[in-house]
Amino acid sequence: MAKKAEAAAPAPALIGTSGDSLREAFGKALAACANDFPKLVVLDADIAGGTGAHHFRKAFPGSFLQFGIAEQNMMAAAGGLSAVGYLPVVTTFAVFCLRAIEQARLSIAYAGRNVKIVASHPGIDVGPDGGSAQALEDLAAFRAIPGMTVISPADPAEMALATRAMLEFEGPVYMRTGRSPAKRIFGKDHTFEIGKGRIIRDGKDVTLIACGVEVGRALEAAAILADEDISARVVNMATIKPIDEALIATCARETGAIVTAEDHNIYGGLGGAVAEALARAWPCPVEFVGLKDTFGASGEPEELAEHFAISAPFIAEAAKRAISRKAHA
């Protein structure tokens, strides 16, 4: 059955680094679709060059609002702009979203404002800037805010689709982009829907559920496992909240073991969300790939992925551990 499924859903090609980071893809997509959202305003705290928002600033300077290096004020002011009819997109680094999370909680989520928070520079993907700049807590923190949707697209093509979907969606959204050049995973036929995970490579022995930059690594891990005759399914879980519980249960039932992979602390993010869903629907062995309750460090993103054990070989090892824990093994 798995063989048949694999034939029906060929693994997408990993086209390598495209030169376009997720943040640049976001900025370009935002500028490209802005004409369809006349109420759109983009808020910046003096890092438009880093978040991708510079593309929007260049195209629509009149709808670009500068707040200076003062994220708390910017975050709450977005609530006020929403209250008078605008569609605000707050752009800053993920760590500074954490700095202003209480403003996101009270003046955006609690007040029921339709504000989009787009966070660049998440995880150790930040690279040389080091541990202070590498947000490893944002998925967990924003996921815990009632009513907050949390998404983390995997490649530039998906980022473009997610940017539009986020603007069309009614309600507060936290979206991760990314700093480093991103792997290209999806072609022109890719579709994106908030709340839906997607099987992007089928398999029968284990399911690798990943988000963001870890999706490319999960595909590489599946290739490593295939060389050892282990059939791994890969799920792109681009929406962390609300998580696609039905798909998670299906994968647990069909493959019997799960690995989660995220550029985030292993606590409370994608792994936590998947484990919660499994505990309710279909308990099975789960292994968590992510930073093991530690902060990041300076280095190149791929070096750091090796160092902190979130690169493809570590996902493959985690898959074998999960398979070995199956009840019948």
């Binding site: 004020n73 002011a77 609530g79 006020g80 702009l81 209250a83 605000p88 003046s107 007040a111």
Partner: peptide, 27 residues
């Protein structure tokens, strides 16, 4: 504000109402 629309925004964490008002004024 979701309970009482005329409250204009939700407050209770000091400083935030000022920023929300600023956002309204800017808009």
């Amino acid at each position: 504000v979701k309970d009482l629309p005329w409250a204009e925004t939700s407050t209770g964490s000091l400083g935030q109402g000022f920023s929300v008002a600023l956002g309204m004024a800017m808009g």
